[in-house]
Design a binder for these strands. Structure first.
Length: 274
DNA sequence: AAAACTACCTGAGTGC
DNA sequence: TGCACTCAGGTAGTTT
């Protein structure tokens, strides 16, 4: 479900409720996520969260206390979400982990498909196996034309697959890959190595713009992405191609087409994108 | 090294 | 109503 804007929206929503709080009770109701939730997580009762940051689509909660010191690494997979709820609100199906906080509210990890994860890491999370080989953050200055051009030079794969490769740049999922390629006028199936540096500059800027705009709008609610309080994101209205098969291109009026690349749907305008 | 493909899992929607 | 089928914001791991 969530791409970078949705994860960042979640972080912004959760942070004020979580940071500075201690865990009063931790209830692991179903530990069968992508990898099992480690037993140690249940022992973090009495420990506090000192910071909540994000790397790629991973949320990193720094935890310290009398026994343990480390980072909770959370990923929302395809269908995960975090919600803040008061204890009187009934648990929902697929609320797999409940973190009761000192303030009296609960943070609930909800994930129907269980592709997400909750892991524990001691030491610098940047060294964690899942994080250490990731590419630059798309909104940081170190993701620029030179970096993308250097990668693309050796890649014959379709550009869409290259920008969705987390070793190249993180956080660009299926929706925003389609969107950025559309506003850049680049055909998703074009070989990465056959795109001029000038056009890659446009693409880099469009990736940054679409992600930043979506964060500002609270992310994209397509099916089930909701904020920490249950409200939805507003960016869906501004999607220019994603999920718009057979609808008119907002730039030229041509019918938007759908194709399948790497087992994922790609939406594009056959006229605007070359 | 890069590309192609598999696997993990539940729920919503569609067509018969 | 029920069944069979397709599709869905991701990505690690394996094979070619």
């Amino acid at each position: 479900m969530p791409e970078l804007p949705e994860v960042e929206t979640t972080r912004l929503g959760i942070s004020p409720h979580l940071v500075g709080q201690d865990f009063r009770r931790i209830d692991l109701r179903d530990t069968r996520l992508r990898w099992p939730i480690p037993d140690l997580v249940a022992d973090l009762t009495g420990h506090s969260v000192t910071a909540l940051s994000r790397r790629a689509k991973y949320l990193l909660a720094e935890v310290s206390g009398p026994v343990h010191q480390g980072t909770l690494i959370l990923h929302l997979g395809m269908s995960g979400s975090l919600r803040i709820a008061t204890p009187d609100i009934p648990l929902r199906k697929h609320d797999h982990a409940i973190f009761a906080l000192g303030s009296g509210v609960e943070m609930r990890f909800h994930d129907p498909r269980r592709f997400g994860c909750i892991l524990w890491h001691e030491g610098d999370p940047a060294d964690h196996k899942l994080i250490r080989d990731l590419g630059p953050e798309p909104l940081e200055d170190d993701f620029d034309t030179d970096v993308l051009a250097a990668t693309c030079a050796s890649r014959s794969a379709p550009i869409k697959q290259v920008i969705m490769d987390g070793r190249v740049v993180v956080g660009v999922g299926n929706i925003y890959a389609c969107e950025a390629l559309h506003t850049s006028g680049i055909h998703p199936a074009r070989a990465a190595s056959r795109i001029s540096k000038k056009r890659l500059t446009v693409l880099v800027n469009e990736i940054k713009k679409v992600l930043q705009r979506s964060i500002t709008q609270g992310g994209t609610t397509l099916r089930d992405f909701l904020h920490e309080d249950g409200s939805s994101g507003y960016f869906k209205q501004q999607l220019t191609v994603y999920d718009r098969e057979n609808k008119p291109c907002r730039k030229c009026g041509t019918q938007i087409k759908r194709m399948v690349q790497a087992q994922r749907s790609t939406f594009y305008c056959p006229k605007c994108q070359r």
